[in-house]
């Protein structure tokens, strides 16, 4: 009978069994849930495509190209001497996100600026890569969505964006070939 189930001895053991049942059940549910959640993470084929090689030879000084990497544009810019100088002459105190230009390029390849081309504000793609596009007040990139201005090192100088354009991991395979990712 239901009303007699709490009577008698064996309380401790019964409680232990209920606790064990609830605990194993909980563990089972959590373990069963994980594969379903993890299945939404990038699949093996997506991860395998996570690097891209770019031929730099056709990019003249002053020019930039866009390449696709992980479904996002990456800006590859061959900077002129003046642009590098402009990036390095900045007073660090003026910067929102304080990074030196040196830390954003590879030494020996200072002319090559490689950036994830996604505005750090809300994910739009800044203008300034293609010739004729507005490069903003600092000669780098300009995001038309909410007016963020980036300089020739891709650093945020004006507007709502909180951080500099991100630098992806990349390495130079040769002087004219770079592997991003």
């Amino acid at each position: 009978m239901a009303d007699t189930m709490h009577a008698g001895e064996g309380h401790t053991r019964r409680d232990f069994i209920y606790l064990a049942a609830a605990a194993t059940g909980g563990v089972a549910a959590a373990c069963a849930l994980w594969p379903f959640i993890h299945s939404l993470n990038p699949a093996a084929d997506t991860l395998a495509l996570a690097s891209v090689e770019v031929d730099l030879a056709p990019v003249q000084p002053g020019q930039a190209i866009k390449v696709m990497w992980r479904g996002k544009p990456v800006f590859v810019r061959n900077r002129t001497e003046e642009e590098i100088k402009a990036a390095r002459d900045v007073n660090m105190a003026e910067l929102v996100d304080k990074q030196t230009d040196e830390s954003r390029v590879k030494s020996g390849h200072e002319n090559w600026l490689i950036l994830v081309g996604v505005c750090t504000h809300l994910g739009c793609i800044p203008l300034g890569t293609n010739t004729g596009e507005s490069r903003g007040d600092y000669g780098g990139w300009f995001c038309p969505c909410h007016g963020s201005h980036y300089d020739t090192s891709g650093r945020i100088r004006k507007g709502p964006a909180p951080a500099n354009l991100a630098v992806p991991t990349y390495e130079f395979l040769t002087d004219t070939r770079v592997k991003i990712g």
Partner: peptide, 8 residues
Amino acid sequence: DVNWGWMI
């Protein structure tokens, strides 16, 4: 390729 896809 999908994580745990075979099982699901």
